[in-house]
Write a protein that binds this DNA or RNA. Structure first.
Lengths: 217, 217
DNA sequence: GTTGTAAGGCTTACGGCGTAAGGTCTACTC
DNA sequence: GAGTAGACCTTACGCCGTAAGCCTTACAAC
């Protein structure tokens, strides 16, 4: 009579884990808590996941799957820009993922597919294998690094930033960090400033450089 | 009779914690283990450290303190390059630190001093406040992102890379990721290839771009 | 239908974790 | 010699990941 409760699957587990991490941070993801949310005991999760590391690997791959891939044959510069923007958007949505990316060393299928497409786009645009490696490395480093920095900002709004800044400067000897204060007060705390805008600047810097290197070939 | 054992200090605790993390990874740093290494019970550490988060904050700041700062008044491009190279070297020595940087939101004195010096160098070179912010953001994102990628490589030598690569490609459907395979086999696995060399390329790309923006002012 | 079997989920238990609460011992001040 | 502050210790609590083994269901073969 009791209707069969919805069966667990690896996908349902991963989706719940990603949602938990989004809502409460990575440290709020525990096997017991996850089980509870899925209406199941912790140990039952092990039917669908080898262990916690496997769960984390799966979460990273799920995040990668969210990043939009360029259409095959798209113009390389547009493709790289859009991919980078999408990656940043996704990593902002799941800030915990950046930290995980480092410790996970078993890339999942979505991750591999992602890299393959990006590399393919560059090769098709006529980049040499060597320049493709340079480009891939440079763009990825920048995107992940930027997301990392954004995720470590201890505030989300200008008001919060002002508060945090004030608290920080109070604890410092007066005049100890004049340049940092100048930059903060005269630029970052100005109304309308958005740290996210810095992203485009650096990205175009890199794309410009790659373009030059490609043409100079 | 029993000679007074060396007193604990915050510094001794932090140094031991950094050493532990270097040797056994971040997850090997626990209050109990750290106490043991220092010949003390876990709870005694709390005299010198507010809690584990405070310990982690201190570790990050200790790592920042290792990064070489440019001399005041140095030529900006040289200064930025050397700083970036030093940061990468240090982060390679303490790969766990990158992951920590993100979750820590209370920058310590060494960190603040570091940022202040970098910003000051750019301002003294005539960079506008705005361009300084752009430059600071772009360089840091790149350096941290690169270090992040380097730290997540699951190998340290060409031989290891070949092994890992082979294992990975075995598990994939044949021909599924042709571009990834090409790049790996024809470039990365070639004798003499060093992923670290990619660092310079991207760094010069960014410095070139900044130089152009600065001159165009 | 009965039986065999595999798989999903549950129970219990172990050793580790961070740290709250409160105790003891030492070294110094007056 | 009494008082006090601070360094270090003991105990205990509620978390954690997961090994081992049990119970229940669903279906296949006969």
């Amino acid at each position: 009579m009791s209707e069969t409760r919805a069966r667990l699957t690896r996908d349902r587990v991963l989706t719940a884990a990603v949602a938990r991490a989004d809502a409460g941070g990575l440290e709020s993801v525990s096997m017991r808590r996850l089980g509870e949310e899925l209406g199941v005991e912790a140990m039952s999760l092990y039917t669908h996941v080898a262990n916690k590391d496997d769960l984390l690997d799966g979460m990273v791959d799920a995040v990668f799957a969210e990043i939009e891939l360029p259409a095959v044959g798209a113009e390389w510069r547009t493709a790289m820009r859009e991919r980078a923007v999408s990656a940043r958007t996704v990593l902002n949505r799941h800030p915990w993922a950046i930290r995980l990316m480092q410790s996970r060393t078993a890339p999942g299928p979505a991750t591999l597919r992602h890299h393959d497409t990006v590399i393919g786009t560059l090769r098709q645009a006529g980049f040499t294998v060597e320049l493709t490696a340079h480009a891939f490395s440079a763009i990825d480093a920048y995107v992940y690094g930027f997301a990392l920095q954004e995720a470590s900002l201890p505030f989300d709004t200008v008001e919060e930033a002002a508060e945090v800044g004030a608290g920080m400067f109070e604890r410092m000897p007066a005049g100890a960090f004049p340049h940092l204060v100048e930059l903060t007060v005269e630029h970052i705390l100005q109304p309308g400033y958005d740290y996210g805008d810095e992203f485009e600047f650096g990205l175009e810097l890199i794309l410009d450089g790659l373009d030059r290197a490609h043409r100079a070939r």
